[in-house]
Simulated assay, not measured.
Amino acid sequence: MERILVVDDDPNIVKFVTLNLTEAGYRVAAANDGRQALARLKEAPCSLAVVDVMMPYMGGLELTKAIREEYDIPVIILTAKSHIDDKAEGFKAGTDDYLVKPFEPQELIFRIEALLRRYKAEGETDSIRIGNVSIYPDNYTVEIEDKTYMLPLKEFELLQLLAEHPGQVFSREQLIEQIWGIFYEGDERTVDVHIKRLRTRFTKLTEDFTIKTVRGVGYFLEPCV
């Protein structure tokens, strides 16, 4: 049975989410702020974290960054704001998904199920090779000249999709649907943020491929070997 970490300083939200997740068959570890959440993670492993943005002592974005440094689990951000800046900051911090309050419990459960499926490696998967770059979908790592790099899930999935179809142009809409799912309600600029992060990361590491922009359309990966 999967264990879900729920972090919110509003006890009513914690109770509401805990009740619905328990009914859906999950175990729940509850926390009221970021510091308490990190303590819960040390007590027992969790498969996923649902984190509120605005909390005392340690906010949701800071907590997300801390989780990213120590644990390989997906994070869903809960926010009362609907501005793109708030969502973008969440993705920059490393979150995998977000929900704007108020939300339907079934939608949260759908998103949890989708992320857990993506994080589970279903057997060994062949690596994707581009020159000296090897991409391993089974453990979400990238190997370049005997050095291994771990990427945030959304960055990895985006790189994997582009690398599996070199030269094929994907629109932002297609990338949103493939990587973030049909229930994603955010702005397509999220794709731009993740592409920029991939470019920044790999420009320093390899010259074996580049991610190019087709203005007004989308992006594609071009091997340089």
Rank of each mutant, 00 (worst) to 15 (best):
L108F: 08
D208A: 06
E89Q: 15
R40V: 10
F91Q: 08
R68E: 07
L41D: 09
I73H: 13
V191R: 03
E143T: 11
L19Q: 10
G131N: 11
L19K: 11
A31M: 08
R189P: 01
F170T: 05
P223C: 00
V142N: 05
E188W: 01
R35I: 00
P45N: 13
L159D: 07
S47A: 15
A80K: 07
E70H: 15
Y57W: 09
M54L: 11
I211P: 12
T210C: 00
K15W: 09
I109G: 08
T95I: 15
F220G: 00
A37I: 09
R68A: 08
F103P: 09
P56L: 03
T190A: 14
D8N: 09
R27W: 05
C224Y: 05
F103Y: 11
V53G: 02
E70Y: 10
V100R: 06
A31G: 07
T200C: 10
V193W: 03
T148Q: 12
V217K: 15
W180D: 12
A30Y: 03
I4V: 15
V193K: 01
H83F: 00
M58H: 04
I176P: 02
G123S: 06
T79K: 13
L41A: 09
R199M: 03
R172H: 04
R3M: 10
E62R: 07
